[in-house]
Amino acid sequence: AQELLTKISEKCFKKCIAKPSSSLDSSEQKCIAMCMDRYMDSWNLVSKAYSSRIQ
């Protein structure tokens, strides 16, 4: 799952941290947590949609 972790870090860093400051504040952490869950939801949804097309 290394590739998924790298993707999540890149996508959620981009979505949640507009200008990097001197620490990760609580609203950024909350955003990263939601972003991560939604990215995994999306991965699962894509996986299902793609499976049903190739069967």
Binding site: L5, S9, C12, F13, C16, I17, P20, S21, S23, L24, E28, Q29, I32, A33
Partner: peptide, 8 residues
């Protein structure tokens, strides 16, 4: 912050 994000 990128490393913080990855660790988080």
């Amino acid at each position: 912050r990128f490393i913080d994000t990855s660790n988080f």
